[in-house]
Design a protein around this nucleic acid. Structure first.
Length: 275
DNA sequence: TCGCTTGTTGATGG
DNA sequence: GCCATCAACAAGCG
């Protein structure tokens, strides 16, 4: 469940649910998801603390308290869940935070590609989050275009690069490129001014709409991802059958009609620089 | 058994 | 140094 919109939904949910509440106890069900502290260390550090307003940067959720902070990344399968205190555990509950209102916040993650970190402050968190580009929800047009001007290489790889713009993952990238009518194998340096502007508009529109939707996880019927992966899926715009390929190492869906491929010369150059 | 999966990192090679 | 590709991490599903 973990691209920017899902993490933003988690942030809002955490803000409603946990901000202002005191931590009664912490149960680390699977210590391997706590990346920079022992189970005991995490539990001891958080017990008795009060959560403040959480913060989101890209796909990271920072749960601050009046003491240290709990940093969460959801990998590919992580999510937050609420449950009555000490109720039956879910198979994939990894860390459980019991609050003073008789509820529990649970960090649930099947594949454990994400994790939990204990941080003492913002500087501490910076080291764990690594270099992040501007948040995809907040980035301004001028800044995006400036960063794009410096960028080389595949446009899809750029969108998914967290140090370029933070928060976009594989599905959002496909949606953005489809909306901007750019083939996923286009290279940034070949995009003209209009295409760059279109890319930014698509990024902003897709991220804003997905963040504001009530039904997190649902894609609009008129969007690419609504039919992504469905057998015989057709482009919602032009009804051309969608194509599936691998770009930047990830499964990629696109419309071969709306998103015309780059010129053969560009592909050849990429494949065989010497020729 | 193989291939595939909304993420990230590090090694490798051109 | 830059960029693309791939394995690894882990666990499930068809």
């Amino acid at each position: 469940v973990p691209e920017l919109p899902d993490v933003e939904a988690s942030r809002r949910w955490f803000a409603d649910h946990a901000a202002g509440r005191r931590v009664e106890r912490v149960v680390v069900v699977d210590a391997s998801v706590v990346r920079n502290a022992s189970a005991r260390g995490l539990a001891d550090a958080l017990r008795g603390r009060c959560f403040r307003e959480p913060e989101r940067l890209g796909k990271w959720l920072l749960c601050w308290t009046d003491g240290p902070g709990l940093v969460l990344h959801f990998g590919m399968t992580g999510e937050l869940a609420a449950a009555p205190a000490r109720s039956r555990r879910h198979r994939w509950d990894r860390v459980i935070v019991e609050l003073d209102d008789g509820t529990e916040i649970r960090y649930r993650d099947l594949r454990k590609l994400g994790g939990a970190w204990l941080v003492l402050g913002a500087e501490d968190a910076t080291a764990i989050l690594g270099r992040l580009g501007p948040d995809a929800l907040a980035v301004r047009r001028a800044e995006f275009l400036k960063l794009l001007a410096r960028r080389r290489g595949g446009v899809k790889a750029a969108l998914m690069d967290q140090s370029f713009v933070a928060g976009v993952g594989n599905l959002l990238a496909d949606e953005i490129l489809w909306r901007a009518r750019l083939h996923p194998r286009r290279r940034v340096e070949t995009l003209d001014a209009e295409e760059r502007a279109s890319l930014f508009r698509a990024l902003r529109a897709v991220v804003r709409v997905t963040v504001e939707r009530d039904d997190a996880g649902e894609w609009r019927r008129s969007w690419l991802n609504y039919v992504r992966g469905v057998a015989g899926a057709r482009c919602p715009r032009c009804r051309t059958p969608l194509e599936r390929t691998i770009v930047a190492g990830r499964t990629t869906w696109f419309c071969p009609s709306c998103q015309p491929p780059p010129p053969a010369a560009a592909r050849e150059r990429r494949r065989d620089p010497s020729g």
